[in-house]
């Protein structure tokens, strides 16, 4: 396959950026999207040019490090991460636009790399449970209804890649925050801090400069881990109940 990539190039956080055009030849349909970027970078290095900076780590779709907007869609046309997006979903001769996540809360570090530590600060503000230390508790000491366990697990699948923010027309982190709040809030171990957690996480989310939710559902469509949209409604319910109970 022969592809034309239009890639966002930006030398640094405050440098101006632009879309640069590159031809990549010898692309195999079995390559992942990141491998195409690797191929491009090898050519750029041989030509003595600066390679394209992008985040990646596990390359098996479980770490959440990678993430680029491909043709206007977070992680590209398939519901997976960019590292698991295969070139068979594109056609020979395609022109592909590659851009970084765009959000005020995700400043560009370089090229396609953005700083996502705003998500870490949301987690730090409430994404924990109070647990007694010592020996591991007996597994059946605290029964958890099957449905609650499933709900917690579904939300725990979030890898924090930030695709929800990138896809949202408002740059909102509601799906991410809801996944974290629901993951812990669904379980009895996490209910102790329930009110404090949801209030703190929503406030941090707002303070970090993420937008609000307009229920377009773009986040859940883009999410590679299938975090369900109803998690947002559940967090809203939790937030309003906690706000009512506040002094």
């Amino acid at each position: 396959m022969r592809l034309t990539l239009r890639v966002w190039r930006q030398a640094g956080p405050d440098a101006p950026g632009r879309m640069a055009r590159y031809e990549v030849t010898d692309v195999s349909p079995d390559m992942s999207f990141l491998e195409v970027l690797d191929t491009l970078n090898e050519e750029l290095t041989l030509r003595g040019e600066e390679p394209v900076a992008f985040d990646h780590d596990c390359r098996e779709g479980i770490c959440g490090a990678c993430g680029v907007v491909v043709n206007g869609q977070a992680h590209g046309p398939e519901r997976t991460t960019a590292c698991q997006l295969h070139m068979r979903h594109f056609a020979d001769g395609d022109t592909i636009d590659v851009e970084p996540w765009r959000a005020a809360a995700f400043p560009v570090v370089k090229d396609l790399m953005v700083d996502r530590s705003a998500l870490d600060r949301i987690v730090a503000s409430g994404g924990y449970v109070t647990a007694p230390t010592g020996s591991a508790p007996e597994a059946h000491a605290m029964p958890v209804p099957k449905e609650d366990a499933e709900r917690a697990f579904e939300n725990a699948a979030c890898i924090g890649c930030g695709a929800c923010v990138a896809a949202c027309p408002n740059g909102s982190a509601m799906l991410f925050t809801a996944a974290k709040a629901e993951h812990l809030g669904a379980l009895p171990q996490g209910r102790v801090e329930g009110d404090r957690r949801v209030l703190a996480m929503v406030e941090t989310m707002d303070d970090e400069g993420f937008g609000g939710c307009t229920n377009t559902g773009a986040c859940a469509t883009a999410c590679p881990k299938g975090i369900p949209l109803p998690s947002i409604a559940a967090m809203n319910r939790g937030f309003l109940a906690a706000a009512r109970r506040a002094r």
């Binding site: 959000a103 005020a104 909102s172």
Partner: peptide, 15 residues
């Protein structure tokens, strides 16, 4: 206003 400020740079490729 908050929503607009949260995406200061628009995507080149609109979806």
């Amino acid at each position: 206003r908050l929503d607009r400020a949260a995406r200061p740079v628009a995507y080149v490729h609109r979806d």
